[in-house]
């Protein structure tokens, strides 16, 4: 059993990211667009974790050596926290828009257009 190269994880992350980006562009339902954003965030997480495993980042000299593998994981933890907050707010906004407009097609939401 050979070890998976770093490039494998990066390729997977890349494909997932691009699929998410395509979804954001082509979808019209804001909830699905939101899901695609989550997908992109997860792709970024995967890349972070692959780097955390394979490539140590040097830290400031006063930081213990055991933390050199932690950068990626910390980034992912913060991404998860931000994603949770973002979903709570975003879905709240979508529901609020739906209540006032009775319409959730993203292309029709042009009230703020100048």
């Amino acid at each position: 059993m050979t070890e998976v190269p770093l490039a494998g994880y990066l390729t997977l992350a890349l494909i997932l990211f691009v699929v998410g980006a395509v979804g954001v562009v082509i979808k019209r339902n804001p909830i699905v667009i939101f899901m695609c954003i989550e997908l992109m965030l997860n792709a970024a997480n995967l890349a972070f974790l692959a780097f955390a495993k394979y490539h140590t980042t040097p830290l400031a000299p006063d930081v213990p050596a055991s933390y050199t593998f932690m950068n990626g994981q910390m980034a992912v933890i913060f991404v998860m926290a931000v994603a949770a907050a973002e979903v709570a707010i975003g879905l709240g906004i979508i529901m609020a828009i739906f209540r006032t407009r009775e319409e959730i097609d993203i292309d029709e939401m042009n009230l703020m257009k100048g």
Partner: peptide
């Protein structure tokens, strides 16, 4: 991050409650 989550909770309640 925890502060951000707190703001997120309060914000989502505000968004959802406003009628």
């Amino acid at each position: 991050a925890s502060l951000l989550l707190l703001v997120g909770i309060v914000g989502s309640i505000l968004v959802a409650k406003r009628r």
